[in-house]
Design a protein around this nucleic acid. Structure first.
Lengths: 214, 214, 214, 214
DNA sequence: TATGAATGAGTCTTCATTCAT
DNA sequence: CATGAATGAAGACTCATTCAT
């Protein structure tokens, strides 16, 4: 996966502290600690003191860089959206260049997403569902998903075997299915029942069948 | 949808208070209030006092029936699992009797699940992800999902057009896909982008294609 | 001083907790503690924990009766206004009945106010000046002062020796002068320089001269 | 108003940092910022960071010139006392030279004081009542007031129409009355009820009547 | 000397839980 | 059994002050 792409920049966290590049290390440290703490404790039980402690800074320092607990979660989500976006565009770029078959392409995508979510299986859900997000962030999220659907739709256009009458809807379904199944499996893997690679294969099979059905 | 089925009973909440059938009404009232409060406020902000108030009982009474806030959530989840189970078996029974086609059958299933989740879109997620559940509940959850997969697999056996080599895996994928997509859509419907009925149709199309692919 | 009067009731603190008569003791205890703590530490440094401790209740109990620190200050101020009002009306009633001379009447008034302020010299100022009061309380305060001015003006009408062309203004000046001088002396008595009784006499002399000047 | 007078110098702030004349500009800048910040936010909410920001210096620099927040308030109060003192002596000097009538003289005084307090109506009160001052400052304050009383008494000696048996007490009353009424009106002007110029006239009338009563 | 990032004790407030009535 | 006043540990956040650069 190569070829990133200038992502649509959308500051989701335009608070007091610009969270700029100077002392980036501290901000990063805090966000790293926050990710770990939220991952383990959830949003509500992920206290700012715990985050500061985990990040190895004082609570005062934390509040020098983020105006509130919510702002930390928003920053984390901002990163997640950017990451997902980045990954998607890398993948699309790659596929456009390499001319893989649909099956391989989807396999690559699913695999990448599963890998991504497996690192911090709960974090995304926590940010998306437990955190009381300001309205603009919700909008940005919706927008990001729509954008992803359209991007995937654009890629699908390259595959003549695809029969689906509406590529936008197809793109939406692909994105949603991969996102949700991938997350679900990452969060509660049931390897006893179905091993990871088979799970991936089944998901790919389902998507291929859906897109290229007769 | 008729024909329930004796669900596998598994006490998930074997704490101090036996939560028996005596004064069942009070327990039900409390759980009803808790469901509403959690749905609106989330787990952390769903205070026991609010639950008691909503249920129309005193906080003392609440603690007479549940030993802790967590126990309430667990009881709620227990119910949710039983409901889902019940719904699934009703559906399967119905399908066995009525001999619908695969497409209709899946449409019925998807529709039912979406309907179920749409009533309280957040509740399931809150119980599953926001609540710090004891290990045995997690196990019961996994078990319930496996059981559902097997049940669906049993139903799929009745459709000769299904090509899938492993019905257990197919059942698992169907259950997981419906669960996760359905929940995702219920939680964040994006009607602007894709209307509900089209979403259902697409999901069904995907499942049918997956199961009956050549 | 007798003869109170149905004071204009104006709830300045219509928050969640009605602060009613049941468990009046607890509310009173808290207010008593708050008065002492504010008196000693000022508003900002008068922490709710200190208040609770002083009142001999837990911090939780304090917040069961008052929704915020500010509400406590407002309740205290409410009492102060009511007390002052009560005292004023008692005095006026008394004077109307007893037909004292102007000099005696003013002496009685000044003495009463000084006595009142001497109990908690700082408290009033703290409540009036340090506490960030909601707008409606400020209005109520202004109203109370105007009302006091009018009440005194009404009393002054009974004294034919008073030459002042505008009794309303005269009443205002009397109230303001007594209030501010009285408070100033109570807060920083300089007995070395001028003893209390002489101070009172001088103040009365000033007011009499002002009202009855040729 | 001319003719100042070498004020009794009394270092109220003999802390670590000598607060000398070197880099006097910086000290002045800080005090100016502090006055503005205290005026707006009060003592407790007037943070040192805000003061530094307002003064256009870094927080580090602020602490290079003042050992603590309290020291800033004390320095400010010191200035206020000196200013008042200066103003008083200017006035007395002026009166001695110009030979105005008592009424005009008092009018001038009252007017000047009201003007002075109207600029920063809260500041004096904040410094006097909200700030936890060390004992020596309180003593200095008392001393300043006694000195003012004596100064005014000296001036009153020039007016033969004054009947008051004890000029020292009369001076004290004049100073106290003007100080407190003036401050009260500046802090909470009630122009609806009594306009500023009438308020001044009434106050002067009261003082004249008091001093020159038969 | 000036700077400002870092500190952490201390503030207000919430809420699960208990227990005397 | 039901009640609800009382509890106090814990959380988000502030701000006076320090110190390495």
């Amino acid at each position: 996966m190569i070829a990133p792409m200038a992502a649509r920049k959308q500051r989701l966290n335009p608070r007091k502290q610009p969270v700029q590049n100077r002392s980036k290390t501290t901000v990063d440290t805090i966000l790293l600690g926050a990710a770990q703490v939220f991952e383990v404790h959830g949003y509500a039980a992920g206290t700012t003191n715990r985050i500061a402690e985990r990040a190895g800074v004082s609570i005062g320092t934390l509040y020098q860089y983020f105006p509130s607990k919510e702002a930390i979660a928003v920053a984390l989500l901002e990163r997640h959206i950017a990451d997902t976006d980045h990954r998607l565009h890398e993948w699309v770029g790659h596929m456009v260049v390499e001319q893989h078959g649909l099956c391989d392409a989807l396999h690559d995508y699913v695999n990448g997403m599963l890998e991504m979510h497996s690192k911090q299986p709960r974090l995304q859900h926590i940010l998306l569902e437990e955190t009381p997000l300001p309205e603009n962030v919700h909008q940005a999220l919706l927008e990001a998903e729509r954008h992803a659907a359209k991007t995937v739709a654009g890629l699908l256009r390259l595959y003549p075997e695809i029969q689906h009458p509406c590529l936008e809807h197809a793109g939406f379904m692909v994105v949603q299915t991969v996102e949700s199944l991938t997350h679900r499996f990452a969060a509660h893997p049931d390897d006893q029942f179905i091993p990871r690679n088979i799970f991936i294969d089944e998901m790919v099979a389902m998507l291929v069948a859906y897109l290229a059905r007769v």
